[in-house]
Nucleic acid binder design. Structure first.
Lengths: 193, 193
DNA sequence: TTTTAATGTAATAGG
DNA sequence: CCTATTACATTAAT
């Protein structure tokens, strides 16, 4: 099952073919990466069925009701407060028009992690500015500050918290990288002496 | 570049200023978060100006030399560990052969927007083929598989990772679109009944 | 114009 | 809280 797929790539192009078949050979003989790993058997420990490609957004294909498959219902989620675009809004409208309450409820019941994922928040320039200014003074605002910010900026406190977490990670990353560059440059110039 | 500038306290924008200063007022009058708490954590601030975006392919480009700012020249850098492809090499050749220094300067000016972005990787047919085949079986390859692919295909592991990210997004998009069509058709036919 | 490589970052998971 | 990944929205190169 697995091998035919890989080898199926070999149809033309001799030069390319060589590389592909070399790749496939490695798989079957040396197993420097195993069929198992390719098949996803070494996937994260949670109960993801082996052999199935873990495509969460397609899981609903097995559902009987095709209506339940549209991601559109995410936008009915009260948690949603991202920016709206005309296309999506139109979809929502259609949804509200044509689906009963119970139907919409079963939508929500069917939400898997991906569909339950919070729609990405698009902060405004002003919100970012304020957050950055606070961050300059205090990268670890306590709950009271976060609540204050949430009120001032009209955001959930949760969003604030996540923002500061990501912001700290960013700062740390940049710090790490500049240090790395410094070391590398030092090394380089020492070689040039 | 195109992305919203995170830093930059702006100078105009009365609305923004109002909000910021309003916030500061709260800090000093109500003390809903204390100066102490901020000052206590102010040691957190390291003197890092702004996050450097980690662009290893630009690392050794000296900012003082304008020539070194055109991406093309980065390929002459021994530290550049990207893969040289014929197209880029040809560009370099043409650059050196046919353009005067001043011409190259204006060229550079024209391409200034380009600075800081990794040159677009052009995958070969064979690389795509292998990647697609692996993707069919596993859309979420772990680090080991990615490294293996990187070796086999002579690409950076980073490129592999990005490729799978974009590939997943593409699959999801197509899936979404086909579902939308399905739902639309369902609506249409139900309206015609 | 379309497709897709690259980027930045919000959201999530696990420790 | 942190780190590591992922999804997602955009930008830009082909």
């Amino acid at each position: 099952m697995a091998s035919p797929s890989l080898c199926a790539a070999n149809t033309a192009a001799s030069q390319d073919l060589h590389k592909v078949s070399g790749f496939a050979e490695t798989k079957t003989t040396q197993c420097s990466f195993s069929i198992e790993s390719i098949l996803g058997l070494e996937q994260k420990k949670d109960g993801i069925p082996a052999g199935k490609p873990h495509r969460p957004w397609m899981d609903a294909c097995d559902d009987s009701d095709p209506h339940l498959q549209i991601p559109v219902v995410c936008y009915e989620n009260p948690l949603f407060h991202g920016k709206s675009d005309p296309v999506q809004d139109e979809k929502v409208l259609k949804c509200e028009k044509y689906f009963s309450v119970t139907e919409r409820l079963s939508f929500k019941r069917e939400l898997s992690w991906y569909r339950g994922r919070r729609p990405r928040t698009a902060f405004t320039r002003n919100q970012i500015e304020v957050l950055e200014n606070v961050f300059k003074m205090n990268s670890y605002p306590g709950i009271d500050i976060r609540e204050e910010l949430a009120r001032k900026l009209d955001l959930d406190e949760d969003r604030i918290q996540i923002w500061f977490q990501n912001r700290r990670a960013k700062l740390k990353r940049s710090h790490r990288e500049s240090q790395f560059l410094m070391v590398k440059n030092t090394f380089t110039s020492s070689l040039l002496e």
